[in-house]
Design a binder for these strands. Sequence first.
DNA 1: GGCGGCGTATGGTCTGACCATACTGTGGTC
DNA 2: GACCACAGTATGGTCAGACCATACGCCGCC
Lengths: 232, 232
Amino acid sequence: MGWEPVRRTRAFEDVIAQIERRIADDGLTVGDRLPGERQLAEQLQVSRASVREAMRVLETLGVISSQAGRGPDAGAVLTSRPAGALADLLRLHVGLSSLSMREVAETRMMIEQWAVRHAAGRASPAHLERLREAIGRMERAATPEEFVLHDAEFHLTVAELSGNRLLAATMQALRATVRTYAVRAVRRLGTTDLLMDDHRKIYEAIETGDPEAAATAIAGHLARAYPGDGPS
Amino acid sequence: MGWEPVRRTRAFEDVIAQIERRIADDGLTVGDRLPGERQLAEQLQVSRASVREAMRVLETLGVISSQAGRGPDAGAVLTSRPAGALADLLRLHVGLSSLSMREVAETRMMIEQWAVRHAAGRASPAHLERLREAIGRMERAATPEEFVLHDAEFHLTVAELSGNRLLAATMQALRATVRTYAVRAVRRLGTTDLLMDDHRKIYEAIETGDPEAAATAIAGHLARAYPGDGPS
DNA sequence: GGCGGCGTATGGTCTGACCATACTGTGGTC
DNA sequence: GACCACAGTATGGTCAGACCATACGCCGCC
């Protein structure tokens, strides 16, 4: 018979489903605690090992964070860290060559352009201040590593400014993935003067609220920082 | 002292790191098998439980796929299923309200526009055939569920056509996340005539290689299918 | 009132066992 | 010789129970 062999649901999958159901039904949100592993195991009639495997999955996906010991912060607490999960995913798939740096860089270009367009004219004084600080730190950076760190801070602030957390998290993960390439690129350039000019242009376009100028500036910036498409 | 408490590396994290190292050093790629859980446990001097937790993480990230039994396909095999991982991530974070449907829909709009621009003029005859088939199936669909299924097939083909696997996988995950909303939207519309007109316009723009017409058509299409930004 | 130490709840790890699954090789049968 | 049934076995899936490490809460002493 041509049936797809229906894989029986594994115990830990059931645990995940039950926890998901509780989140929906009981209206649990970020900051709330889940029952302890032993208690969950008893409630769901599975072994603690299965509960732990489910916890690993949820932790990997960035929705819980575990802490040993006692007190309000101990145990499994619901969190929201999608960026870490995305970064792990990208790193592993790039390592496996099932994603190329070209695709990662391309995606980054797309998101950065979109984000800067939506950030233009929307920045609060506090956000503008953060952008200026990042620029200042870049100017004072002594090493390529340091420069790239603050460069990432600048671009991440722009992404947050766009008002889309999914894109901001994705940006963060993409940045982390290309980090070593970025350091190498900066080192190859020798000077960061041109990059700093780009940043100032981007900042001005955001402050004055000119989406197209911002998009053009960031496109030039990324092309300058990553000429060609990079290796792999 | 203001030290960050350095959390000691957990055993399963070490296992993941070692497996990652093997992938890099030994040049393992999709399709290759990993040693069995018992063997890995002995090699890395950890318990099988820790190895299994690492396996769960890798499976969650879409990098391995486990199968019991014997033979070439048994055991943990390296795979590449980023879409499933992304879909799980989105579903959980939306459930936790740490991501909103607005952000998901917005991201989808961005990717679809980018993809259709890059797909225009690049489609092989086989791809065009797939698009036509999807359109045909949509026309013959008897229920909203069926329509949405083939609609997703159409849009996913466009995403694959763009030549960026990361974006294609993300699209697939985004589609899966909004699926129930899509079904509801189609049901509310009553007729799918307007949506089908959109699809034909998009197809033509891709075939004739007109990126801007394609982008405009898809923007209108998504706005029509998801008026407003949807709930939540 | 402050402070030190013990109790304890929590995650982290290990061991060893057993079950379910699916191939592999063996031996018998026609 | 070809085919087929069945035992063997390697693999993941699950369980039970133990012990360790950590960090807070509580209690009693000073």
